[in-house]
Amino acid sequence: MDSGDEEASEKYRIHLRPATLRDAVPATLHLLPCEVLADRPAPVGRFFTPAIRQRPGALEVSFRGRILRGEEVVVPPSLAGYVMVMDEKAEVLAGLGKKQESRGSEKGDGEEEPQPLERDFDRFIRATASFARFHLWGLETVPGPDAKVRGALTWPSLAAAIHTQVPED
């Protein structure tokens, strides 16, 4: 795992709208073993969800003609799952727009336009849904105990050990 998300530049602060955490409604999530090259609405409830069958030892569904087997994974009890979406860049675009305009009209008068306030660069993110469990799918077989995502779910308990304060001598 590596850190980060390339969205934030060094100066920006991305504020999380706290009320949205409180109001987030539980969502149904499926982690698929394939890449679907799209980010958009999809009729999951029409084609995928009704096709899920409970078989001995696993859930089963077919997607694009392949058999997927999976199971429900519960988010560790000390954590909560949130789906977050960045707000539109309205503030940022407004700031940049002004700057470019001023650049265009700069010719001749030599007057320096004031820099946009730093907070013009700040952005906002909000939780659109919450989750306490999700469906983990594998191609033909349920992802085993060594699956990377299962390892990732043990990370918070290791992180706690690394970052808890140690006693002084």
């Binding site: 969502a27 149904t28 999530l29 499926h30 982690l31 698929l32 073993p33 394939c34 890449e35 679907v36 090259l37 799209a38 980010d39 958009r40 609405p41 999809a42 009729p43 999951v44 409830g45 995928f48 789906v83 849904a129």
Partner: peptide
């Protein structure tokens, strides 16, 4: 890997 989140897909 991709997500289905409610009625949407996240690549």
């Amino acid at each position: 890997h991709s997500w289905f989140i409610n009625q949407s897909v996240q690549s």
